[in-house]
Simulated assay, not measured.
Amino acid sequence: MNSSVSALPLSTLDSANESLTLRLPTSLQLKQQLPLGNVLSQQVAVHRQAVRAILDGEDHRLLVIVGPCSIHDPRSALEYAEKLARLSHDVSDQMLLVMRAYVEKPRTTVGWKGLAYDPRLDGSDDMADGLTLSRELMLEMIRLGLPIATELLQPMAAGYFDDLLSWAAIGARTTESQIHREMVSGLPMPVGFKNGTDGGVAIAVDAMRSAAHGHRHFGIDSQGHPAVVQTPGNPDTHLVLRGGHKGPNFDRGSVAEIQTALARQPVPGRIMVDCSHANSGKDPLRQPAVFNDVLEQRLQGNRALIGMMLESHLFDGCQPLSGTLRYGVSITDGCLGFSPTEQLLLQAAERLRNQA
């Protein structure tokens, strides 16, 4: 992965506040530099349709979004992807595994913002290189046969990757954003809206309703020009439960209460559970317990639970960003190692087979 589309020379220097503006390549330029191609484009289309079939109840499999909290090292991410591609074949009769290719990291205050922002991890913020490296990496994952997913945080960045994704997430802090709801209304893949940080689902329900409708909104076209964007609406959205300040919301009682609330709204009742964040008490090693609890609810007949999300890397835990990093260990949220992730998914697939 050594292609590069560089930022253009400095275009603006505002002496009043010393702000800088560097022009990035347009999304069209980067897509032309690193094209998806017809064969892989058809593969992405098939994967998107498979996700839709699960959401619509036409496919009995579980949808499992799994992979690093965020990618900081392309080499370890590709090693993980190779392992996941092999595992995917072993469980494909019961699960559709979608790899987390998260290249943006939301921050409560400040900190490393992700591969697309700062690919060298040194504060240089070479976003042109970050966008290029992120797209190259996603293409490599797709070539392995994997569907990929990401969280869409910065709407301007979405156009650099929207042709590659089979599923996307809108995070708890951005679900309430009108700009993100408008963006989702024009995306060609299924999207999960996370519940708000308070644990309530009303904001996510509003987001699903908004995204299902067409919009005319301010945006950027593929050539980088300001534009009026008209969208058709996205019918393929769903709720993602990730817990909140008051604690988890994956348990049977919480799910039943949320299903009742969804039934009163003109939105689909399908639910995914994020086994991390508040649902695991931010302890990555508790994710299997959450996963198995949700799986048991599914096995007992709750078909509204269409899938789960796991934060998983090559090795358990996390580490601070420093000059010396352990290979395959997250530098953002703590992750479950690949070996226990593999064991968890193989056992879950066997339980699902036995039920059938």
Rank of each mutant, 00 (worst) to 15 (best):
L187Q: 12
P266R: 14
A158N: 14
S27G: 01
V51K: 08
D73Y: 03
E140H: 12
L131I: 09
E136M: 10
G233I: 10
L13R: 05
T108M: 07
L137A: 06
L346W: 04
D206I: 10
L346N: 05
R23T: 01
E79D: 12
S185Q: 08
N17H: 09
V39C: 02
K31N: 14
L78V: 07
M156T: 12
D198T: 13
G269F: 00
Y102A: 03
V51D: 01
L305M: 10
L131G: 01
D274I: 02
T150C: 06
G196A: 15
R353V: 14
S134R: 15
F250I: 07
I331R: 02
L28K: 15
D73K: 00
D333P: 01
T108K: 14
Q297H: 09
E350M: 00
R173C: 10
L137W: 14
S276F: 05
M127D: 04
R216C: 03
E58Q: 15
R107I: 03
Q355H: 12
P320L: 09
L34N: 10
D316Y: 07
S276C: 11
C69Q: 09
P25M: 13
G114D: 03
D251C: 06
G111Y: 02
A304E: 08
L22T: 00
Q287W: 12
G301R: 11
S70Y: 04
Q287T: 05
H217S: 08
I148S: 09
S3N: 12
K31H: 14
I306D: 01
F193W: 09
G307C: 05
A304V: 07
A278K: 05
Q265C: 13
Y327R: 14
S76C: 12
A53W: 02
A53F: 04
D274T: 06
G67R: 15
P9W: 05
G199N: 05
L305A: 09
I203P: 00
D333M: 02
Q154S: 02
S322P: 00
A207P: 02
F291M: 02
L40W: 13
Q223H: 11
G281N: 12
L321Q: 00
G301W: 14
Q287G: 00
G317S: 12
D129K: 08
S222Q: 14
Q347K: 15
W112I: 09
Q42M: 11
T260I: 07
L24F: 00
A261N: 04
D93W: 07
A157Q: 12
Y327E: 13
D73F: 01
E176C: 04
L187I: 04
T260F: 04
A101W: 14
D293F: 00
G233E: 13
D283Y: 06
G214C: 10
T260S: 12
